[in-house]
Design a protein around this nucleic acid. Structure first.
Lengths: 111, 111
DNA sequence: AAACTATGTTATATATCCTTACACAATTAT
DNA sequence: ATAATTGTGTAAGGATATATAACATAGTTT
């Protein structure tokens, strides 16, 4: 009996499929990662893996950008909305993978 | 507000990830397809795409095989359990992609 | 004995993804 | 107003992932 969030937050989707699901270009998807808005997992070989939650987030990001909001500003918003959560909530989300590690201990190329 | 089944049945996962999630070899996964137990989508380029539901099904298949049941027999079981559903149910599942087209009009290499 | 089952392995080809770099119009900052 | 930054396209070259087909084989079923 897998919980919903187990599907929603599992990082199993390639960038090509994310492109299809979101309508964004791969360039855009990678750029938003560079701007620290999204944090896909990586296979040992280096391929990005996204969750459905990531896909949803990307769509939200794209909408804001269409509204003229800069990635810089979007990032601030995201950090702000996170700080409003209590530590318990954050811990829970981290464990379930609903939260992209944003507090220093990431390994990726963009730190 | 995406429904759960929208995630569970969307075919977005590569065979490599399916291998990881199930513990099966790619050879096995492809073989079960050849035996008409599983029906991944294909990208235009020909790469297989699986859903979480497919992953679950593969695990069930693997368990039966471990119990000595042959693919042949498993397939019969699957068809039997399908026939017990009423046409409405079947139609609904087809639409939601919960059912792998098993009634002739498939395009794949294994018909 | 012959056929089939389930799986591994190997070879070759195609698809997909990666990073880096250059370009450039538009916007924002100094 | 000039300089810097933003957001995105595109191209090159390389690495990773997947595809099919073929051969092998131990075990099972016919």
């Amino acid at each position: 009996m897998e919980s919903d969030s187990s599907y929603k937050n599992k990082k199993v989707i390639n960038i090509g499929i994310v492109r299809e699901l979101t309508g964004l270009s791969e360039r855009q998807i990678r750029y938003y990662e560079e701007r620290k808005l999204i944090f896909p997992d990586r296979t040992p070989g280096g391929s990005r893996k996204y969750s459905f939650a990531d896909v949803e987030l990307l769509v939200e990001i794209a909408n804001k950008i269409e509204d003229g909001v800069q990635t810089h500003e979007i990032r601030k918003e995201m950090l702000r909305s996170q700080k409003k959560q209590n530590p318990e909530e954050i811990r829970r989300k981290m464990i379930q993978g609903q939260l992209n590690a944003q507090f220093g201990f990431r390994k990726g190329p963009y730190s």
